[in-house]
C-alpha cells in the first residue's frame, strides 16, 4: 500500500510527535519502504492459525492482592522536573 504524507501526518499526531516538512518527507519515504517490506507477510497463508502473544507458556499468573508501598516515594517523584505539591507532580490542567 501507498504511504502518503497525509497518513504520516495523521500517525504522528496520534503518536504525539511533531514533524516539520522535511521530516514528514523523510519519514514518508522511509515508512513507505518499511511497510513495503512488511507487506511480504501477505504471502503467508494464515487461515485458521492462532495468534501468539505470549511464548513461554505462562498464563494467568496470580498472587495475593496485597498492597505494597514503594519505599522511596519521595525519591521517585523527585525524578520529575516539574514542581511538586502534596507528594504529587504539578502539571498543566488537562481539561
Amino acid at each position: 500500500m501507498q504511504i502518503t504524507k497525509d497518513l504520516v501526518v495523521k500517525i504522528a499526531k496520534l503518536a504525539r510527535i511533531r514533524l516539520d516538512d522535511s521530516e514528514t518527507e523523510k519519514f514518508t519515504t522511509q515508512l513507505g519502504a518499511i511497510v513495503g517490506f512488511i507487506e511480504k507477510l501477505n504471502s503467508v497463508d494464515t487461515a485458521g492459525v492462532a495468534e501468539t502473544n505470549q511464548v513461554n507458556g505462562m498464563e494467568n499468573v496470580l498472587r495475593e492482592d496485597e498492597i505494597e508501598n514503594f519505599p522511596k516515594m519521595n525519591e521517585l517523584i523527585a525524578c520529575s522536573q516539574h514542581p511538586l505539591e502534596n507528594n504529587q507532580i504539578k502539571i498543566k490542567k488537562s481539561i
Binding site: I11, I17, F27, L31, I38, L41, T46, V49, E51
Partner: peptide, 30 residues
C-alpha cells in the same frame, strides 16, 4: 524511536490492525 513509534501506531490503527498486527501474530505462531 520516532520511526518505530509511528510504524507501531500505524500497525495498530483502525483499518490496519488486522492486516498488519493480527497477521504478524499469526505468522509468529508459524
Amino acid at each position: 524511536v520516532k520511526r518505530r513509534i509511528m510504524l507501531g501506531t500505524f500497525a495498530l490503527s483502525a483499518g490496519y490492525a488486522d492486516k498488519f498486527y493480527k497477521k504478524a501474530l499469526q505468522v509468529r505462531t508459524l
